[in-house]
Design a protein around this nucleic acid. Structure first.
Ligand SMILES: [Mn+2]
Ligand SMILES: [Mn+2]
Ligand SMILES: [Zn+2]
Ligand SMILES: [Zn+2]
Lengths: 148, 148
DNA sequence: AGCTTAAATGCAACAGTGTTGCGATTAGGG
DNA sequence: CCCTAATCGCAACACTGTTGCATTTAAGCT
């Protein structure tokens, strides 16, 4: 996974530096999305010290290469799980535990584009995040209500 | 339009204050979305001085009453144009002039929910903004390319 | 393995954004 | 015209994000 991203960096002519590796690894490990300062704190706990400016610049680069995404709803970052290809990447985010699923669906895009045409709007890309509960958190929530 | 919002404030037991009126009017006039500090600057040009803390608190209130929305992509605010009812409100934002259309579409929601169920995800609400060109800006862009 | 150098990082300083507590003001009911 | 809870303004602060420039480093080349 991290290897794939490293290969993208290389083939695009970017250096594979220690800070870039470290940010990749942190994003890979994380179950939830991370803010730039979250990343700095997590790395510091591992004895790795990165300047926040560096983290910002690395995240910018990763996003431009589609190795990571900046979530709209929170501004936090996640590692892309669909590869670095172009296209519309959508998210389902659990608002309880923060875990998320990335997916792409051509039909949804078609539908949205069709709707937009009615308004004479020329869509270039879709930004889409659904908020809700993952199966785990839904089950927990449900059990609580039964016991209450 | 502003009148409708004022009525919502009254029926919900909130005071109709001068700052709240002023923010409502600015949002109503604006063609594009506004940041809290944009609102402060615009009002100041009209000789109206609001503390930024006040503006933040007013925008929080308006959003909680569905009188305004905070755009995901920019964090800027727009007046809701579909009334204060619950439901999924989507946007088409022109990335050139900033104007936007708000809309709601039950079929899109159904489709997204159906997709989520396959992942055992329980959707509570959709966050959706399409980015592209409005008809005006599309025409301008097109003409430019012809002349070039 | 040691040079070389463009690319990347670190640092300092700063600007912008957003939050909290508390005292002063005000809308709106009696 | 009072009264008072709701709202606002102010001060102080924390967090987030940006820029310019000096220093370090990855990686290509001997
Ligand atoms: Mn992706
Ligand atoms: Mn709305
Ligand atoms: Zn969850
Ligand atoms: Zn436009």
């Amino acid at each position: 996974m991290v290897q794939d991203s490293i290969r993208v960096l290389q083939t695009q002519g970017y250096k594979v530096t220690k800070p870039r590796r470290q940010v990749l690894e942190i994003l890979e490990e994380a179950q939830e999305s991370l803010s730039p300062y979250d990343i700095q704190r997590l790395l510091r706990r591992q004895g790795k010290h990165l300047n926040h400016v560096t983290i910002y610049r690395i995240l910018d680069l990763f996003c431009s290469l589609n190795l990571a995404h900046k979530l709209l709803s929170t501004g936090r970052f996640v590692k892309c799980s669909l590869g670095d290809k172009e296209g519309c990447h959508r998210f389902m985010v659990c608002h309880r535990c923060g875990t998320l699923q990335e997916f792409a669906d051509e039909r949804l895009c078609q539908e949205e584009n069709g709707f937009a045409r009615n308004f004479d709007f020329h869509t270039e890309y879709h930004l889409s995040e659904s908020s809700g509960l993952c199966s785990n958190c839904y089950r927990k929530q449900h059990q609580k209500q039964e016991n209450a």
